[in-house]
Amino acid sequence: MTDKNDYPTLANADLIDAERSLFCDARPVPYEPYPVDFVEKFANWVRANSLWVLAFGTGCGAIELNPLMTSRFDANRYGIQMRPTPRQSCVIVVAGYSSVKTLKRIIRSYEQMQGPKFVLGLGICSLNGGMYWDSYNTIKRIDQYIPIDLYVTGCMPRPEALLAGFIELKDKIKAGQCDGTNRYVKDFDWYKANQKKVIKNWDMPDYNW
């Protein structure tokens, strides 16, 4: 752990006093890669070959996630499987549009995942708003709120496209290019400011450990 002075505590200003003691106020800290290069490469290979996807349908694109497990597409053979709890999963798929209400849940789930963690944006809506470009309740760029490692664009992308996206993600992880977890920690204040700008009723701690 790094010295606490380098990472001052979070204000948690939006919590009511009775709840403040229930939540952690420590800032997130970046994780260090393994000191030995060979070990880090091996770890990346392992991470790439065991992608546990958070089974959280954030939008219409979630309908494309379910067929992945069926006989036709069989994502199991790439080491992809669904986990029902954010604690144990390492990939979150932002499937399609996300309304402000969903964004809050996405952030909570994302922050509860343990690093290294990866985010896959599915569908044009997560990229630039897509057909919801003028919606009062749909955010346009998900990468302003959580760090995205890979986009699969389309409306809707078919499961084949999603599968290709997963394979691309695996290649990126193996190459050690997916540093979203540390980017989020590094630009934490920027991300948090963006999140609080759109989420009006912020009634949770600043970082959901």
Partner: peptide
């Protein structure tokens, strides 16, 4: 709604 959108969400 377009004006609200421009005020609150950024375009790519």
């Amino acid at each position: 709604t377009v004006k609200y959108c421009e005020e609150h969400f950024d375009d790519r």
